[in-house]
Design a binder for these strands. Sequence first.
RNA 1: GCCCCCGUAGCUCAGUUGGAUAGAGCAGCUGACUUCUAAUCAGCAGGUCCCAGGUUCGAAUCCUGGCGGGGGUGCCA
Length: 616
Amino acid sequence: MSTQQIKQDPLSILDNTFRAAIAKALGEEGNFDPVIRAAQNPKFGDYQCNAAMALAKSRGIKPRDLAERILAQVELGDVVESMEIAGPGFINITLGRAMLGRTIESMDDDRLGIPPQGDGHVITVDLCGVNVAKQMHVGHLRATIIGDSIANLHERLGWTVHRENHLGDWGLPIAMTMTALRNSGADLGQLTLDALNVAYRDAQLSGRSDVRGLEGAIAHGCGPHRIAELETQNEGAIENISDAKETLIALQSGDPELVAEWNALIDCTMREVFDTLGLLNVNIGPENNRGESFYKDKLAGVVETFIESGIGVEDNGAIVVRFEDRERPLLIRKSDGGFLYATTDLAAIRHRVHELKSERVVYVVDARQKDHFKDVFDGSRKMGWDKTPDGIESDLHHLPFGSVLGRDKKPLKTRSGENFTLRALLEEAIERGTGEVIARAEDFNAPTHGMTRDELESIGRAVGIAAVKYADLSSGVTRDYIFDLDRMIAFEGNTGPYIQYAHARISSILSKAEGEDIKWQNAGIQLDTAEEKQLGLAIMRYPQVILETAEQLEPHRLCTYLYDLANTYSSFYQCCPVLRNDDEDVRASRLRLCSMTRRILADGLALLGIESPSRM
RNA sequence: GCCCCCGUAGCUCAGUUGGAUAGAGCAGCUGACUUCUAAUCAGCAGGUCCCAGGUUCGAAUCCUGGCGGGGGUGCCA
């Protein structure tokens, strides 16, 4: 992914031209980065070339002299309107309006100027990651919507995308929950996820016992947090564990009754999970389920392979992988013969890279598992498991996201100390959004006035969900953030609804133009006013933003761009009458600018998993 | 103990990968609706970029050492 893939736009032309000019000016062979950047301040033009200073210094020339020599080599015709040298050796570039207009016209196709990157690129996105018998909570919000957005972006670029919902559907915790449910005589067919969740928690509390783990933790100087946690666990009963282990063994060996119960457990969980995912408007369904159980029969083989290659070694009865640069080993088999989540993750990497042939595997998992993924990735590299069948080194990438906190800056809990369910939070957001939409529809002049209750609720849902998702996606993924519905639903400034609103206003203009049978689809784009030109420059940047957002795995870059585009449009909207303009050519040009802006806003929002109502 | 992340305006955050006078939103103040949707726009005010060194033409950004907050740290996931 690089700028070179976008051929026709002024930015690429500037890049290529200055690249060549620098070599000529220096009289040297070589590929010099021309450091073309958008100007921060309009008084410095639209773009600038910042290469002269660094290059001049290392060659003992005056930067401004070098800038002069570079400029003498540059032949850009009408791509630029003017260029001048400023400050220590900046070359400020003002783009030609006609060329800019033609560039935007050329972007007016079904790809909006985004170059395809087809050729069989494959990516796996590990996202959502719900656990069977547990409610979705805010933690899953991020793993779901960030992952969905990353997947969307790569799809948009023509990649083959595997969305993998790595369910926690196997192992002792599940067996313990099943045992607890059996003992309580519950009817699995009638269970709600709430009841399941209670059973899960109770089973965890009553069953945890880990004397060896505690000793190890103390011996290895673990933090007080971990030690206290393990001590608490030890206070629980031990018998439950052996019960659960029996259940697990029976389940493992295919006991039909248990397998049926296990499936019922999954069905019960996923019914509600998919309801919630439906509210969230993400593209994740049953076809994306590939949980831990998928890998259960591969774990013994994984460990054996590691042992045979000498990379997995025995230590106190356990099998570990050691690394040269860290003390912490990677445990892949417990001393009691059981496997760990690292084992499953290794099997999953093997599958994703070797079977699915992914050249990129992105794990959208919270930041606390950073060390774990570092170890698992390095462990798989030691085995060469990061190589696709074609020998490509796969980019194994943990995308660590920060925690969602309550207003007290502590993990979000209800009064009684429970996790909020994600569904409850989303429903509240939808309620707030709907209330707002209905209130505004009461205004006789509102475009939504007179719409049916169903229509208004549909818009309200889109607005409420947009508020939550945009608030999450618009700040850097690694940061923690405070879940504050009041702020998210404020709908002013840098929010999802603000962008939706810009989209709705444009839609309104375009539908009026259609009603008046005004033709503009093939109009020449004119950028005579400052506002039109700024809008044109913003439109032009879209393809590059998409490439960078996908490459860097940073959805907030797209958010920042969309906000800037919506904002730039609003200034244009204020200053540049469209339908009211008497000049047919100007009117048609502006309509085409409106159309491009609307399509980019809708496309960008869609990539974030956010809907774009045409009225609100 | 060791490792990782974070620290930018009163609050919430950007900062184009080292460029010019550090930018937005919210909150505050001033102005703009008989007007294509005011969920808007134009403007004012607001800064020890945690601290101290270093690297260089140039540092919020890179390197070193501190301070403060959070997280992780061998048989849980």
